[in-house]
């Protein structure tokens, strides 16, 4: 073969351009965020802290030992910053898996369902790259979701409740800036905690051409994990469950967080991501695309 030309007989060149991955990523995020359903779900996530804030303002926080209702509820009336944390604790079990299940279930199965998957592959887009871009798009959406909850939680909390020096769960007082930094860390931890779910959703999405099936599977996966987590008889497997460490983000509200617990939570997610992505990749790169 002659090394001379990348020019085909018709006279055009075929080579990868710089920034190709970024262009594909923008195409994907545009599609994800401009889709009305996804935008509505995102707005819905942002609405929850507002509703929770108003409810606490109107009815007051329940008195008691702090075991009733979602975590951190008692602290909200003392410091509006806690509205973010109580909202996250409230939404992590079901609402967030629901939204992310809908999103990740759609990633590959949605394209297969509309038939656009075959045309993406014919562009051509390698199957590995397609999966990577889809995963990046889902992660971006999850980040936007966590950020939305944080921003509306902070705004509502600041409007309805006092803000200022933050009293941590450990009783220590830290500055508001320190509290904000902890909120950022918590947002990061929550996002990383969700990566296992995203990977599982991606895998389910490669198994079917029916997006609803993949969505349901992803949501059921998160719910079953929590059901198993609530059975004391299964305590041996608890540390390895997808959702077991989700609420450990509260550790970051202590002056001395138990980092081993947090790292354990991240390690579990890493495990789910490794397995989920491997399965998704091996399935998707070998499957016949008949849709």
């Amino acid at each position: 073969m002659s090394p001379v030309d990348s020019v085909s007989p018709v006279g055009f060149t075929v080579h990868r351009r710089a920034g190709a991955a970024w262009r594909a990523f923008t195409a994907e995020t545009r599609l994800v965020f401009t889709r009305r359903r996804n935008a509505v779900l995102l707005a819905g996530l942002g609405l929850v802290p507002i509703l929770v804030g108003i409810a606490i303002k109107v009815n007051g926080a329940p008195s008691g030992d702090g075991q009733s209702g979602p975590k951190f509820l008692q602290q909200v009336t003392g410091n509006g910053l806690f509205l973010i944390f109580t909202s996250l604790a409230l939404m992590l079990p079901l609402l967030i898996p629901l939204v992310l299940g809908i999103l990740t279930g759609d990633t590959v199965a949605g394209e297969a369902n509309t038939g656009t998957l075959r045309y993406l592959l014919l562009v051509p887009v390698s199957r590995t790259r397609l999966l990577a871009v889809k995963a990046a798009g889902a992660l971006t959406y999850a980040a936007a979701g966590v950020l939305t909850i944080g921003v509306t939680g902070l705004a509502t909390g600041a409007l309805l409740f006092p803000v200022g020096e933050v009293t941590l769960l450990s009783g220590d007082q830290v500055s508001f800036a320190n509290g904000l930094l902890r909120a950022l860390l918590i947002g990061g931890y929550v996002l990383l905690s969700l990566t296992g779910l995203l990977a599982a959703g991606l895998f389910f999405s490669t198994l079917t051409e029916v997006p609803v099936a993949a969505m349901a599977a992803t949501i059921v996966f998160a719910v079953v994990s929590q059901v198993l987590d609530s059975l004391p008889q299964l305590h041996v497997v608890h540390p390895y469950l997808l959702t077991h460490h989700w609420l450990d983000f509260g550790e970051l509200l202590r002056i001395a967080p138990r980092s081993s617990l947090l790292l354990q939570g991240l390690a579990v997610q890493l495990g789910y991501v490794a397995v989920g992505v491997s399965l998704a990749w091996s399935r998707f790169t070998s499957a016949d695309v008949t849709a």
Binding site: R16, R17, R23, A27, Y119, V123
Partner: peptide
């Protein structure tokens, strides 16, 4: 435009 953005070439 979306298809074109996915096209690395």
């Amino acid at each position: 435009r979306r298809l074109d953005r996915w096209d690395a070439t």
